[in-house]
């Protein structure tokens, strides 16, 4: 099937103007399939981690959103243990004017600012909600420390 001009152009731009902290490479045999690496944002419990994701552009793209999933285990209230992400622009807030680049930036932002009020992993969200204040202030308590621990366990080289 012919690859729409838009996808070719997006890939070109991802290479020529890369986003800091984000790397996205499309497979040679299937140009719609991307290996993505997002660096954990500074001053977040994910700092120092390199998180692998997979991204797929369905046939309907850009009318339908890309499918994105974390491959690296991550302790985050909006990401479940299968790596599925709860993010509005990947669902009902999708607009065809969004791009791979903006989607990945949003995911990066989600790492900096978890949203425990709209959780996917309920236990993690509960944990975050219960002592987010304490956790962020001290930087030692769960869930902050759990996230950091997991980052070290699963996302460091």
């Amino acid at each position: 099937m012919a690859i729409p001009k838009r996808i070719t152009k997006e890939i070109g731009r991802l290479v020529s103007e890369p986003v800091p902290g984000i790397e996205a490479k499309s497979h040679e045999e299937n140009i719609r399939y991307f290996d993505v690496t997002i660096t954990g944002p500074v001053q977040s419990p994910f700092e120092g981690g390199a998180f692998k994701l997979e991204l797929f552009l369905p046939d309907e793209y850009p009318m339908a959103p890309p499918k994105v999933r974390f491959l690296t285990k991550i302790y985050h209230p909006n990401i479940d243990k299968l790596g599925r992400i709860c993010l509005d622009i990947l669902k009902d807030k999708w607009s065809p004017a969004l791009q791979i680049r903006t989607v990945l930036l949003s995911i990066q932002a989600l790492l900096s600012a978890p949203n425990p009020d709209d959780p996917l992993a309920n236990d993690v969200a509960q944990n975050w909600k219960e002592d987010e204040q304490g956790a962020i202030a001290k930087g030692t308590l769960a869930p902050w420390s759990a996230s950091r621990e997991w980052t070290q366990l699963y996302a460091s080289n």
């Binding site: 309907e60 009318m63 339908a64 622009i89 607009s95 065809p96 004017a97 969004l98 903006t102």
Partner: peptide, 27 residues
Amino acid sequence: ECYSEYMTSKIQKDGESRRIQCAATDC
């Protein structure tokens, strides 16, 4: 062409009608 495809997809696939917004993000 894109606008038509966008509208068609919203109507046919999502079954939306009165809430179809401008194709731009957040508009």
